[in-house]
Design a protein around this nucleic acid. Structure first.
Lengths: 129, 129
DNA sequence: ATGAGGGTTCCAGTCAGGGGAAGGTCAAGG
DNA sequence: CCTTGACCTTCCCCTGACTGGAACCCTCAT
């Protein structure tokens, strides 16, 4: 398979696939003309990476997850720990965003949103709150 | 005031303050020795920027907000719209993170997390789910 | 032979700064 | 007078995970 086929079958942009090769996540062979030549296992890895990235794992997490996946003698505890740490980071981000949302939402509610200049949002930002 | 004073009074790192000057958000004067020389208004602007950034506004949003703040004849509707758009982006991010959280949380719950290799997390990532 | 539609490499940019080097300035202490 | 240490300056590279684009090569059909 050429990169275009792999791209459409995996859903990942060709640029991303080249980048993944660049950083050593996949190692496709090369055809005589210099084109990348992907096997089914490469496609499978890319799909794996796509799903892990969609769950928000960092590239380095993905590297670890792939290594665990390929290690038949892994302990599921290692996978679970990685996932739990990632889950904790997600929760932290949600909490941060939720705090922003609550504060900003309240300010928005207090703002008349008309043609007059008085604005509680600007007032709060300027520290007059 | 030198940059160190402004940094401790605004809570922003000196690096950040220099960066904000670089991109034209503030324009401190210079002393004879070349040091930046901040007035109270600069400090006020930096505090404004710090609060806006803490609410997750982008730098470009901050630029707009500052311009609105300094425009005495602004309409609060403009501020409100900007804030509402930002609020919508925050909500989108929260929803994305929440979806990741739910999916990953379920997988984590299903994983025994012991010394055996069987792992529903890896199974899901590999597409066997 | 030429054009379209693949592929390749490499360089630069994104966002919002952070890290650190090389060097200038200032006040206090010996 | 010299030095030390704390401060300041500019400059350039680094981050994550790509994305865009230039310049060029390969293959096939017209």
């Amino acid at each position: 398979m050429n990169i275009g086929d792999v791209s459409s079958r995996s859903g990942l942009p060709a640029k991303t696939i080249r980048y993944y090769e660049d950083i050593g996540l996949i190692k496709p062979h090369r055809s005589a003309n210099g084109y990348r030549c992907f096997a089914e296992t490469d496609l499978h890895k890319l799909a794996f990476l796509g799903r892990a990235r969609a769950l928000g794992f960092t590239i380095e997490d993905c590297r670890t997850l792939m290594a665990l996946y390929e290690d038949e003698s892994r302990a599921s505890a290692d996978v679970k720990q990685l996932a739990q740490e990632h889950l904790a980071k997600i929760e932290e981000k949600i909490a941060d965003l939720q705090a922003m949302h609550d504060t900003l939402g309240e300010l928005v509610n207090c703002c008349a949103g008309d043609s007059r200049p008085d604005c509680p949002i600007l007032k709060d930002l300027s520290g007059e709150g």
